[in-house]
Simulated scan of single mutants.
Amino acid sequence: MQMPQIGLGTFRLKGDDAYNSVKTGLEVGYRHIDTAQIYDNEEEVGKALTDSGLPRAEVFVTTKIWNSNLGKENLIPSLMESLRKLQTSYVDLLLIHWPSKEFALKETLDELMKAKAQGLTKEIGISNFPIKETQEAIDLIGANNIYTNQIEIHPFLQNKKLVNFLNEKGIRVTAYMPLAYGKVMTDETLKSVGGIHDASPATVSMSWLLDQGFTVIPSSTKRSNLENNLKTRVKFLTSQDAIKIQSLDRNERLAQPEFSPKWD
């Protein structure tokens, strides 16, 4: 199953909010759900998947291995626990959540490749990897074995250098926080572009990302927002619109934990 270009992110969603968001998302047509061990919502995501009644093969599920589980002793056991919570025998995509300063990348990638060989995940990939770390991963297992690099991208953080590198290597780009925690909704440039096309700033931002071939994983708990995000129109923005949006890049990174790598 190929990864649908629009997915449902679950970052910061807990308990009933996570369950209801995923359950509603599946009801309105999402077939791509993104979670992670550190989100502490895999059980709710799994219950929503099961309660949806959809065949497992029809939903693309991504989860991510947390930093403390990236070593040889813990990676596959922690994945088995994630699968238990998700009520599935496999995930479609398994990512390293962040580059590790504690575990050698080769050790982690070897375990991911084992998980894939064992059928515990269909594909493997990386998240929050700058160019240096991505190249190291390529050198170890080849770009063909890296399904995606999931990184923060929105109009205010466009990550152009890294995106160009990933495109050159043939690695898919997955954009998280595509709406910048809702900041796109108040931006005057995005409102102006949207006004020309009878589109919301959220639609403008999402369409701009989709037009570049990125996968996007917006998050919401509201049915109307979930529906609107899933039905985002594409290929309506002009080259002039794109230039206006590109001018908004100000390297405004929202995901910046203390263990972040050195960004490009």
Results as ranks from 00 to 15, higher is better:
residue 159 N to A: 06
residue 171 I to H: 13
residue 127 S to I: 03
residue 193 V to P: 03
residue 114 K to D: 09
residue 187 D to Q: 10
residue 177 M to I: 01
residue 124 I to L: 05
residue 137 A to C: 10
residue 183 K to Q: 12
residue 119 G to V: 08
residue 144 N to F: 13
residue 162 L to E: 10
residue 176 Y to T: 00
residue 148 T to H: 01
residue 96 I to T: 05
residue 191 K to R: 15
residue 116 K to P: 06
residue 208 W to C: 05
residue 135 Q to A: 07
residue 212 Q to N: 13
residue 92 D to G: 08
residue 119 G to T: 03
residue 188 E to T: 11
residue 92 D to Y: 06
residue 150 Q to I: 01
residue 118 Q to I: 00
residue 119 G to S: 03
residue 140 L to P: 03
residue 152 E to H: 08
residue 158 Q to E: 07
residue 143 A to D: 11
residue 124 I to D: 00
residue 107 E to V: 15
residue 96 I to F: 02
residue 120 L to I: 08
residue 206 M to P: 04
residue 197 H to Q: 12
residue 105 L to W: 11
residue 129 F to G: 05
residue 148 T to E: 10
residue 112 L to K: 10
residue 133 E to W: 06
residue 110 D to F: 00
residue 138 I to N: 10
residue 109 L to S: 11
residue 174 T to S: 00
residue 139 D to I: 01
residue 212 Q to G: 11
residue 101 K to L: 07
residue 177 M to R: 01
residue 109 L to P: 07
residue 115 A to L: 05
residue 167 N to R: 06
residue 156 F to D: 02
residue 175 A to C: 01
residue 87 Q to T: 13
residue 120 L to D: 09
residue 211 D to Y: 12
residue 134 T to E: 02
residue 162 L to D: 04
residue 91 V to M: 12
residue 99 P to Y: 06
residue 123 E to G: 00
residue 174 T to F: 03
residue 184 V to M: 15
residue 106 K to R: 14
residue 162 L to P: 07
residue 104 A to N: 15
residue 93 L to V: 01
residue 101 K to D: 14
residue 178 P to E: 06
residue 122 K to I: 06
residue 203 T to A: 15
residue 201 P to S: 15
residue 193 V to S: 12
residue 107 E to F: 10
residue 157 L to T: 00
residue 166 L to R: 07
residue 189 T to H: 02
residue 128 N to E: 10
residue 182 G to S: 03
residue 133 E to H: 01
residue 205 S to H: 14
residue 210 L to S: 09
residue 212 Q to M: 13
residue 208 W to V: 04
residue 189 T to S: 11
residue 166 L to K: 02
residue 138 I to D: 09
residue 170 G to K: 03
residue 180 A to F: 09
residue 180 A to I: 07
residue 158 Q to G: 02
residue 174 T to Q: 00
residue 207 S to Q: 11
residue 156 F to Y: 08
residue 208 W to N: 10
residue 181 Y to D: 05
residue 107 E to C: 04
residue 111 E to L: 05
residue 183 K to M: 13
residue 122 K to P: 04
residue 189 T to A: 11
residue 101 K to A: 14
residue 107 E to I: 14
residue 138 I to A: 09
residue 210 L to W: 08
residue 134 T to S: 07
residue 122 K to L: 07
residue 188 E to G: 11
residue 103 F to R: 07
residue 188 E to Q: 13
residue 132 K to N: 08
residue 105 L to F: 12
residue 86 L to N: 00
residue 201 P to M: 15
residue 148 T to P: 08
residue 212 Q to K: 13
residue 135 Q to T: 03
residue 180 A to H: 02
residue 123 E to S: 07
residue 195 G to T: 12
residue 179 L to A: 06
residue 104 A to I: 09
residue 141 I to Y: 13
residue 196 I to Q: 13
residue 132 K to Q: 10
residue 152 E to Y: 01
residue 90 Y to D: 07
residue 181 Y to C: 01
residue 86 L to P: 12
residue 177 M to T: 08
residue 122 K to Q: 05
residue 204 V to I: 15
residue 194 G to T: 13
residue 161 K to H: 14
residue 209 L to C: 10
residue 160 K to Y: 02
residue 146 I to G: 07
residue 140 L to C: 13
residue 85 K to R: 13
residue 97 H to V: 09
residue 99 P to F: 02
residue 179 L to K: 06
residue 98 W to L: 10
residue 159 N to G: 05
residue 118 Q to M: 04
residue 90 Y to F: 12
residue 176 Y to L: 01
residue 181 Y to S: 04
residue 151 I to E: 04
residue 123 E to W: 04
residue 163 V to C: 10
residue 193 V to N: 05
residue 166 L to V: 12
residue 159 N to T: 03
residue 127 S to W: 03
residue 131 I to Q: 11
